[in-house]
Structure formats: C-alpha cells, structure tokens
Amino acid sequence: MKETIIKTSGLSKKFGTRYAVANVDLHIPRGEIYGFLGPNGAGKTTTIRMLLGLAKPTNGTIQIFGKDLKKEKLEVLKRVGSLVEYPSYYGHLTARENLEAIRILLDAPKTRIDEVLSIVRLTREAKRPVKGFSLGMKQRLGIAAALLGNPELLILDEPTNGLDPSGILEIRELIKSMPKEHGITILVSSHLLSEIDLMATQVGIISKGRMIFQDSIETLRRRSSSNIVIKTDEAEEAWKLLLSKGHNAELEQGRLQLSNISDHEISKVIAELVESRFPVYRVQEEKKSLEDIFLELTGGEGGL
C-alpha cells in the first residue's frame, strides 16, 4: 500500500454554534492528485486552513507525513507548499522580490527563485511590480511561492477560481505535471466537478461540512455508469419478487432499478421475471453523468 500523506480523523471546526467542518476523515496517499470537491460554503477552505495550522480544529486530529500537526507543526510545514483562496502578494514589490521575501524565511537557495519562476512561466515578468499583474499571473506567482521550498505536498485552494479559460487550462496543466515530474502529492480544491474530473486521481466530496464520498475518480465514474432500469407491468409485484430472490432492486417511478449489477446477475433477474410471467418491455442501461452523481450526493445543492 502507498504511504499516507494526509490523514485526519474526526476533523471538525465550529464557528459559533455551527459546524463549518464536521467529522471529516481525509485520506490522501502519496503521489496522488486529490480533488477536494464541494459547493461554495461546504467547508473546503476551513479544512485546508486547519491542515496548514492557520486555524485550530475544534475536534479531531491531523496527521501529515505521519506526524501530528499539533505537535510538529513547523516540521510538517517545511515540507508543504500552499495557496489558500485568493493569492496573497506584496503589490509594491516585483515578482522576484515577493519570492525573495519568502525564500529567506525558507532558507531555500537563491537559484530556486529562477527555477520556480520558470515553472510557472513568469521569468519575463519577474521585474515588474506585482500590483500590475493579471489575476492569472498573481495566481501563478502564488503557486511559484508555494513551490519555493521544494515541497512534497502542495495544497491549493481553488487555484483556478476567477481565471479565464486559458488561465484555467494553464494552471490545470501545471498541476497535472507536478506529480509526474516532481513526485509531489497535491490536494486541490474546487467547487467545479469538471475541474476535478480533468485533473484528479482521487476525489473527496464535501457538502455542508461533511465528507460524503472519498475514493478514486474511477470509482466515482463507475458509480455513474452501471444503473440498469427494467420496465415491466405490475412493477411493485415484480419488485417484491426480485427482493424475495435476494436482488438489490429499487422501485422508482414504476420502474425497477438495479445499480452496480453484473452481467451474470442481470441475466438471472430477467430469467426470473420471465419465468414468473412478468412482461419485460425494456432493459436499459442509464448512464448518470458525474454531474448527476455530484448533485445526488450533495442533495441537489450547488452544481456547475
């Protein structure tokens, strides 16, 4: 099994009387791009702030690189790069000076500044004051700053938020290249399923502060393709028959639904229906899009 980079248990954060994050158990293996997905206000930023030691959890524990964040915060943070919400920068300074102010604190070699500038392709803009940068450039500078310390773990909170399509593409390609080229583990949050779908290898879905799904992106996709719908007369009788035979069927709008079912089982189901003289009008596979799954999981709240 792969080494676990981030592991939280029962992570919770309360503001006033409301839990913004409730009992979140994150599990992020090394080398993955973990897409942290959830509608606005779901608790993504709050979770990320706790992972970076910026906010103290009300309850629960955080382990990063197998170390307790509470006890070894600085040791952990040495190996983490981050970009939280909107980019932070010192507008009156040039891109290079911005990075230099951070580099000193990290004790990184001076040459690292040129390296990260070239990774985010800001080398030619390095001498301009950052306040004149576009949002996309500021965002890239933020990523450059996150990369300065050669992190093993990169935490990016909605890095494509507010960017135009070409800016989004650029950041996405950058993120996708990291684990391959630098062996970095990435946690990237977004409220857009399409974003996560395009870059993540693992997905965690959070809604109203609770994790409602956490697995590989393939598992999420698989969930979206294997729904068999059967149309028949007297659906309720047919449904009871299938249940009595031990099939995991559901009755929905007068149709039988079987999800996650193998070819072998579906043939048995049909045979049983026919034997009991239920007319089978239609057997069809209904493909739910990831979007449907997302909406279903989040209870219809906040789609694209």
Partner: peptide, 18 residues
C-alpha cells in the same frame, strides 16, 4: 497593513516559521 492588504498573513503563517 503590508500583510493585511492582500491578506498575506495566511501565506506568511503557513511557512515553517513560528
């Protein structure tokens, strides 16, 4: 204000410095 302006505190305090 230098830190407040673009909310640089979150960037600064996520660095390995107490």
């Amino acid at each position: 204000s230098i830190e407040h302006q673009t909310n640089a505190w979150k960037q600064l305090l996520a660095l390995p410095v107490s």
